[in-house]
Design a binder for these strands. Structure first.
Lengths: 83, 83
DNA sequence: TTATTAGTGGGAAAATATACCCACATATAT
DNA sequence: ATATATGTGGGTATATTTTCCCACTAATAA
């Protein structure tokens, strides 16, 4: 059974993807924070997969990064547990 | 200035896209609800753009629909206010 | 040493989603 | 009329995010 594991791994993958995009734009947490309405320390937590953000926060991040929101979800992810 | 307007229009577009996908699979609210851990009445509200769901709920919906989460964000959306 | 920048994480009040149930209107069919 | 299925929306307690500030460490530079 993959209980809360799926949910957690998804958050972690999301965070890693966010980190990848942020670094590709050479932005620090504090720099990105000035471009969206999210505190720099909270962005750090999001990238660590510690937070289950809402659509509005996803939108803020995408605005700060200048990308379409769907890019933040653009990573491999298996829906079921699978070999 | 496009204050909370962006946030709202994004939720509404998200809801419309969810509705489009759900109907393409010929699922009623109650049928989709049995496939994910979200109440049927709440799915209705999400499609109406009334709710600002979390990543975990986005994941539940995508599991219920059998699609990758990013498909739920796959719709046109302008980041800035723009003519 | 001193200053600056970066990442990390704790904490708390306020705002909000979640999870759940219920009731109602409509449509279809028996 | 009765039964079934669909969409809609109200309401509530609980859980959680959000928002914000602060402090610490490490690295770099003057």
């Amino acid at each position: 059974m993959s209980n809360g594991t799926d949910k957690n791994s998804f958050k972690i993958l999301f965070g890693k993807n966010l980190k990848r995009i942020r670094e590709s734009k050479n932005l620090s947490f504090r720099q990105l924070a000035t471009r969206c309405n999210i505190d720099y320390s909270d962005i750090s937590k999001i990238e660590k997969g510690k937070r289950n953000i809402q659509l509005s926060s996803l939108l803020e991040l995408s605005k700060g990064l200048g990308i379409h929101p769907k890019e933040l979800l653009d990573f491999d992810f298996e829906l079921d547990e699978k070999g």
